[in-house]
């Protein structure tokens, strides 16, 4: 995903002189082509994320469309107040790009597990939260982000995620839910975000399940009409995410559905299973799929209907 991101950003920057990339001394073998092509719109600020977020705010105040790039929790949790107060309160054109969502950097330990970021960032007003499921979504979101004048969070995977979408160019807008697989005679839908989508798709295919599959490239906002349509079609929803259960994607879906139900916008409230991390850290080494299993981010029969 990070390659899809940087390649698309380079394409956009060729025609948009306002794009500025700040990195927090991370991005080896990713950001170099951008730095070489646009040295006057690139800067490695050093290992100083609070400063990076503040500098991004200042650059954006002067008209730049600023991307800040780092790994995991560093461009997010580490500088949360700068994001809230300097970037979001002033509604500035800054995009926060974190590589390594979830357990992508699994073996590096909990310092590198980005498993609370969605919850923390989606509570901040003016912030759009994006979580692509594959490189095709990452590319589309990068393109959208350039043309959106405001704060955005891009939660990327790492490298080598499998492409799940057949079309190379997705036509999506902010908030859209993507119908990955939708047929009429299915009572169960799985809503998934992030690179764990690949696992969900494989599982459904291998088990020959009649589930419909939707990916959520945006956690905030989520298109309510599309969500209503999904709820109308299914009695059972499974939300799968590589994030803490508290305040994550499943929570976001439930919050919206609860409010829609209360005002009578949906008649039948579906059964909802949230598959997410159960309020704990995992402090042993392991790759991404090992840690997903350890955290029970699995579609095994105990977790589903």
């Amino acid at each position: 995903m990070r390659t899809a991101f940087i390649n698309q950003l380079i394409e956009e920057a060729k025609g948009n002189e306002n794009i500025f990339l700040l990195v927090g001394d991370l991005g080896f073998s990713v950001v170099e082509p951008f730095a070489k092509l646009f040295p006057e719109r690139y800067l490695n600020v050093g290992i100083a994320e609070q400063n990076m977020a503040g500098i991004a705010a200042g650059l954006a105040m002067e008209g730049y469309c600023v991307y800040i790039y780092s790994i995991g929790n560093f461009p997010t949790l580490r500088c949360m107040e700068q994001i809230r107060y300097d970037i979001c309160y002033h509604n500035l054109n800054v995009k926060i790009v974190a590589v390594g969502g979830g357990y992508a950097y699994g073996a590096l330990g909990p310092s590198h597990h980005a498993t609370e970021d969605i919850g923390m960032l989606r509570t901040i007003p003016n912030m759009v939260v994006c979580s692509p499921s594959d490189p095709i979504e990452a590319k589309a979101i990068t393109s959208i982000s350039v043309n959106y004048n405001g704060p955005m969070y891009l939660r990327l995977g790492k490298a080598g995620e499998k492409i799940i979408h057949r079309s190379k160019n997705l036509r999506i807008s902010i908030g859209d839910i993507i119908k990955y697989k939708e047929q009429d005679n299915s009572d169960t839908a799985i809503l998934v975000t992030g690179s764990i989508a690949d696992y969900a798709i494989n599982y459904v295919n291998e088990k020959k399940l009649r589930w419909n599959i939707y990916t959520l490239p945006f956690i905030k906002p989520i298109n309510k009409e599309q969500l209503k349509d999904i709820v109308t079609r299914h009695n059972e929803l499974i939300v799968l995410e590589e994030h803490q259960k508290s305040c994550g994607v499943g929570s976001a879906v439930i919050e919206i559905l609860n409010d829609l139900f209360n005002i009578g916008e949906i008649e039948n409230y579906p059964k909802i299973r949230r598959i997410a991390i159960d309020d704990r850290f995992y402090s042993i080494a392991g790759d991404q799929s090992f840690l997903r299993e350890l955290a029970n981010l699995s579609l095994n029969k105990d977790n589903i209907f």
């Binding site: 503040g54 650059l59 002067e62």
Partner: peptide, 12 residues
């Protein structure tokens, strides 16, 4: 907060 933002403005 403001000194970092000031750095960004001065850099711009």
């Amino acid at each position: 907060h403001a000194l970092s933002v000031g750095c960004g403005i001065a850099l711009a």
